[in-house]
Design a binder for these strands. Sequence first.
DNA 1: GATTTTATGTCAGACATGTTGACTTATCTT
DNA 2: AAGATAAGTCAACATGTCTGACATAAAATC
Lengths: 165, 165
Amino acid sequence: MSDIKSPAAPGHWREAELRQGIELLFFAYRDFTAGPDHMLEKYGFGRAHHRVIYFVGRHPHMNVTELLGILRITKQSLNRVLSQLVRQGFIRQTPGVNDRRQRLLELTEQGVALERDLSENQRGFIARAYREAGPEAVDGFRKVMIDLVADPADRARFTRGGKRG
Amino acid sequence: MSDIKSPAAPGHWREAELRQGIELLFFAYRDFTAGPDHMLEKYGFGRAHHRVIYFVGRHPHMNVTELLGILRITKQSLNRVLSQLVRQGFIRQTPGVNDRRQRLLELTEQGVALERDLSENQRGFIARAYREAGPEAVDGFRKVMIDLVADPADRARFTRGGKRG
DNA sequence: GATTTTATGTCAGACATGTTGACTTATCTT
DNA sequence: AAGATAAGTCAACATGTCTGACATAAAATC
């Protein structure tokens, strides 16, 4: 498939092979995000809103501090997009049960619908590539991608099957 | 390694498996870009400058239209970062030989040095993951990533070993 | 009970990156 | 000569990010 050959010694990669990896990440990510970016336009939302919708959908009743830790942005940045999503009825905030300072986040019915549309688009995008590449390639893909996640806490999200079911 | 099992029928993937793929792309890309983002701060540059430096470094004497096609941004957006890079001595423009309307782009000595630093960081990032995952996983990774590139012209960049050597 | 810490929100100002639209200049093509 | 193309420019604006300062409520600690 690729002109790039396996390296002579395992574990030693040529500059060209590593550079190919750099470009693969750039192009794959660019195309991976294009669909949702386009879908979100009609709501006046961007990629930041998508990330919030996605992770709140995945982890209902998550609090703001947890979300900030995943997104790695400041609370001011988050607050702008989050308050838009709350105002426009995609996310609901409820006070924490044990700690009433917290505002636990969850998708509204409208939020669930939007999250489903966005996720379906991206799942379809991934599914096409998985289907073309085959199950063995997908195993290798997952292995490398998990190793690319630098933060051990985030990596554990995948090696343990995710924080929540 | 992962709790997610292979699907019953090859080519049919469970929702959870595809969702894992979505998250892997998010986290891997987030961590992949963090190093260069930090390195570029001291020059007052951002990710857009990095992309320009990278592709001009990879394809010396590329013209502006070609670069716009890769980056998928408007010429006004490009021109802002490009003119900064030219003014600050990282990129040199020379008139095209056959077509003197073109301004062919290449890195200056200073530009080459910065590109090398940035690329070394990202190659190291990729190399670590490749080393941990092993050669077979890397083959699968490349296969899936190439299939994730939606645009056939961009995909050909990888299946033919790149436009230039 | 008073103090400190934590979780969250808010206001102000700034910067980086992207957009659209209109226009200019130089050069190539027909 | 006319039209198309490559590149640049000016203006206005949207989004997403940042820092810094401050406010409020509730929890934790002394």
